[in-house]
Design a protein around this nucleic acid. Structure first.
Length: 762
DNA sequence: GCTATAGGCGCG
DNA sequence: ACCGCGCCTATAGC
């Protein structure tokens, strides 16, 4: 094993949401620093991009390295891909591994510390808090190339510099990961980190023509709706009132009535008047533009000074009152009278803690802001005609502002800030997003600048149509999804044979639950709910739809109260659902109790004790326990203040306990699969550049392929790799055999298409 | 003009 | 009162 510790100080022109991106032509590696094992620390300093690019320091450094160490290694990998691609991929190809000290620390803290800094990390292991002059200069906007090289180098490779601190962190973390049986798990996650770095380096191609066409269409449609609705605004609405469809306050008042403040020009008190430039003629003031030539001979002039002899201009009050911006209040009568609605509907707005009654109030401080969001409008749609267009408008506005482009202007009308996803599209049409590995308590990834994990699903929006292949009209986007990953994982982890059998035999789970509830045979219910010829079709299809959200809520650990609240069913119905669930899937239901037990035991250890400062400035005590999954990933839970039997106590949240391990372990499977896909692609040199990995979204992997033939092949192969991954994990981490990862099928379905919206099975 | 917060909503 | 995210708008306060 040969550890190669590395850190790069790079030129830092901001570029498309990134502080120092290799995709910016002006950026370059200013000063790399490195060390091999316990060896001496080396460095270079470059005065230009040309100098940096032509240097062979990286080839020389990486030659004998087997483990590449860096803090936030994704950053360094991006730069190696950008400037030393061949050497870096050769390193991965020969089995080279990456050790990210930021990620190691995140795992070792059980994901409590997110994005841990090198300083904080190193100090824990006896490293030194480094000099922060350089950080201050960066914060002041100084470019790396302008920093005194001597200072920069000391910051990088000095005895208290980044290289030493990274080395200290790595060696100690390695020992801890080994001691805690987390090392194999860590390596699997590290390969995923490389997949993420390579995917975001490739980025997603955006067809700007499609984007602009769809954006324009949406803007036009939104405007049509806005005009329609404007016709419904009260006739006496003051002209100064700028009604804002995006404001929950305006919309609530508009629909349900209430006061809204608006800006209006009002006179000063006491009154002031607009000044008018005037000349003085024999004691009388006459506005400059009204003076007669004959009067000029009697005009008052400057008697001395540099303006001597020039007519003197006096600012004189006109009779036009001077106005200032002031508040006025308009009282909306509202389009809906709660008295006209059935009581089970109006109660959802008027009850003390009604779902659609917001915490905020209108300007009178009394009238609550009622929800005018999707769910509220869905409910109202049964009674009033305007709900549907309002909903469509809200969705269009959301799409337009989040996934397209919005330009913000300052008071002078100059462009100030650009918002929306399209601000990140580079000149080559590529969006390089970020996939963040240290951002969640569950070890899931997050995505940002832009978030490419929350693109609207096809069928709800056309946003995904703009994401097409970079290879032109022959190119194809491939998406491979795990089927019901979290449910399969619960079945495997809990050893619930029935749940597993139902999943395996392709049972419609919603009908199965319905059958359990109604105590009717599954086949009968399935026929009633899916066979249009069956006389009970309509009723059972509706029953099936109703039970769906209950299942999701229950999967997230909701109580009967919680299910009732979330789905609108009665508490009795919710309890019945949970009872059925426990009867049908006893092991899956019991699984979370095992986790709770372990959390309570670990939380009661001395190191489980924590303190925090409350809002009132008091110190309060809580405990933190954890659950350790077979791979060694630990999921941390804290206690919260709660009332139990009328008594104030501290307790863990059942909902989090039911969730974190399932969400996290499912994510671990996907990340392990991503790592394998990356190794496969690198081993094959990305098939000459014909196949590129580009993204991952919780249970899916995305690739860009040069044509349909490659897409079909890649889709099927990646689906096989994904389905095979749990078995592969058992090879590296035998403990997963206890979870049945070697015998549970984890099916994955490959699809491809011209873009992310139009997809077909491979 | 800036920051912090709440509400809302996109995804899995 | 059902888990995990990121990012949008509006609003309040400085």
């Amino acid at each position: 094993m040969s550890f190669g510790v590395v850190d790069l100080e790079t030129q830092n022109n901001p570029h498309l949401g990134h502080l120092s991106s290799p995709h910016c032509e002006q950026n370059y590696i200013v000063a790399p620093g490195w060390a091999i094992n316990d060896g001496p620390v080396g460095h270079c300093y470059f005065n230009s991009r040309e100098e940096a690019d032509s240097s062979l320091w990286f080839d020389e450094f990486i030659k004998d390295v087997t483990i590449l160490v860096a803090h936030n290694a994704t950053f360094e990998i991006h730069w190696f891909l950008g400037r030393h691609k061949e050497a870096f991929l050769a390193f991965i190809k020969r089995g080279g591994k990456v050790f990210c000290t930021q990620y190691a620390e995140y795992l070792l803290t059980h994901q409590v510390d997110q994005y841990p800094s090198l300083e904080d990390t190193a100090v824990k292991y006896g490293g030194t808090k480094k000099i922060d002059e350089v950080k201050i200069l960066w914060e002041q906007g100084v470019k790396t190339s302008e920093i005194d090289p001597e200072l920069l180098i000391r910051y990088l490779v000095g005895p208290e510099g980044d290289i030493e601190n990274t080395r200290i962190a790595c060696f100690n973390q390695y020992r801890l990961l080994e001691e805690r049986g987390m090392l194999q798990m860590f390596w699997l996650r590290m390969d995923s980190l490389v997949f993420n770095a390579v995917s975001t380096f490739h980025g997603l191609y955006v067809d700007m023509e499609v984007a602009e066409r769809n954006h324009k269409e949406q803007l036009v449609r939104a405007d049509v709706i806005r005009q329609q609705i404007k016709a419904m605004l009260p006739a006496d609405l003051p002209t100064e009132f700028e009604f804002n469809f995006g404001s929950g306050y305006h919309m609530s008042a508009f629909l349900f009535g209430g006061p809204v403040k608006y800006d209006k020009k009002v006179p000063y008190d006491p009154p002031k008047f607009e000044k008018v430039d005037s000349y003085e003629v024999l004691g009388k003031f006459i506005p400059v533009d009204q003076i007669e030539p004959s009067q000029m001979m009697n005009v008052t002039i400057y008697k001395s000074g540099k303006n001597k002899g020039i007519p003197k201009v006096f600012p004189i009050d006109s009779d036009v009152p001077k106005l200032k911006w002031g508040d006025d209040v308009y009282n909306f009568k509202g389009l809906v009278d709660f008295a006209d609605l059935p009581s089970h509907v109006s109660s959802q707005y008027l009850d003390k803690r009604a779902e659609f009654r917001g915490k905020q109030t209108l300007s009178d401080g009394i009238t609550p802001v009622y929800s005018t969001g999707k769910d509220s409008l869905d409910l109202l749609a049964n009674f009033v005609a305007f709900a549907k267009p309002l909903k469509e408008l809200a969705q269009l506005d959301k799409d337009n502002s989040t996934y397209y482009l919005v330009q913000e202007y300052n008071a002078k009308g100059e462009p100030k800030k650009t918002k929306g996803m399209l601000q990140y599209v580079g000149p080559d049409g590529i969006i390089h997003h970020s996939l963040n590995g240290c951002a969640t308590v569950t070890t899931r990834l997050s995505s940002s600048t832009p978030n490419l994990q929350n693109l609207p699903r096809e069928g709800t929006s056309t946003v995904k149509e703009m994401f097409s292949s970079r290879f032109g009209k022959d190119g194809r986007i491939v998406e491979v999804d795990y089927t019901a990953l979290e449910v399969v994982d619960i079945a495997a982890a809990s050893g619930d044979r029935n749940l597993l059998d139902q999943l395996l035999s392709g049972t419609d789970m919603h009908c199965y639950r319905l059958a359990g509830k109604l105590k009717e045979p599954y086949e009968v219910v399935l026929d009633k709910a899916t066979n249009k010829e069956n006389p009970a079709y309509k009723e059972y299809k509706e029953l099936r739809t109703q039970i769906k959200p209950q299942a999701f809520a229950a999967q997230y650990g909701a109580s009967a109260h919680g299910i009732s609240f979330a789905t609108g069913c009665s508490i009795e119905d919710a309890q019945a659902f949970l009872d059925t669930e426990a009867a049908l899937f006893p092991q899956a239901t019991a699984f979370k109790q095992l986790i709770r037990k372990e959390v309570e035991i670990t939380g009661s250890l001395p190191e489980g004790l924590h303190r925090e400062c409350t809002d009132e400035g008091m110190w309060s005590i809580y405990r933190r326990g954890y659950y350790r999954a077979p791979g060694g990933t630990c999921y941390s839970f804290r206690q919260y203040a709660t009332r139990k039997n009328g008594q104030q106590t501290m307790d863990y949240k059942d909902t989090q306990i039911s969730n974190y391990p399932i969400q996290g372990e499912s994510s671990f499977i996907v990340q392990s699969a991503c790592g394998r896909v990356l190794r496969w692609l690198v081993a094959n040199d990305f098939f000459g550049g014909a196949v590129l990995c580009i993204n991952t979204v919780h249970d899916a992997i995305y690739l860009d392929c040069i044509n349909e033939e490659w897409a079909r092949y890649v889709g099927k192969y990646v689906a096989w790799l994904m389905a095979d991954t749990p078995r592969y994990m058992c090879e590296l981490i035998p403990a997963y055999k206890e979870w049945g990862y070697d015998t549970t099928p984890f099916p994955a379905v490959p699809e491809f298409g011209l873009n992310m919206m139009s997809k077909e099975h491979c």
